[in-house]
Amino acid sequence: MSAIMEVSGLNAWFGAAQAVKEINLSFEKNTVTAIIGPSGCGKSTFIRCLNRLHEEVPDARAIGRVLLEGDDIYGRGVDPVAIRRKIGMVFQKPNPFPSLSVFDNVAVGLRLGGLRRASILKEAVERSLTLSALWDEVKDKLNAPGTSLSGGQQQRLCIARALAVEPSILLMDEPTSALDPISTAKIEELVTELKKAVTIVMVTHNMQQAARISDKTAFFLLGDMVEYGETSRIFTAPKDSRTERYITGRFG
């Protein structure tokens, strides 16, 4: 198995408060890794360190090594903007750009990268929307504002936006927590489909979801990674008593 991303000794702070402590973890190609844990345990902070978004928060900082296909994204002279172009991110609340059409929302990443050719853009937009299982629903309203879609469609639009630049890894921070059950099921199905193309790291507060769609699971508590392993093993035979208490629902 080849790891596409390897995290070692990752620590993150908000001001003086440490939110993520000494995380060592690697993500294998074409797998889904679920990050679970009670709210406030540092899940979001952790995955926001993986594309260097964390440091955009005032007074926030992170140290450690995160190798993306062998290169340290925290290395000297590495431009965080360039890193973020290579890594896709989907947020908790669907956040398409309200001033942009469906088409432009998907094309925006490519355009930032300097791509201007209409034919290439069209092709890439169609491919990304197909990948995110949205093409059939929006192919007749590519010029409508992105925010005119339903919540679930907006989230798939955001997935298409992230996929358009063909990232090797897709970070998702509770992508279904703002959605209804049907939209949630669609996205879960989509994630299982997408892992053929990209490696996915997904934060979720929903343990059934983690059990359903992930290959590996990492359990976080108070900024520490308590346990990591095959999802089936974590949910059937956790080694740490804290993991067990959390997955059986006996935890705050």
Partner: peptide, 9 residues
């Protein structure tokens, strides 16, 4: 919205 923009680089 700002994070959406930063997130795509």
């Amino acid at each position: 919205q700002r994070e959406a923009a930063l997130g795509i680089g």
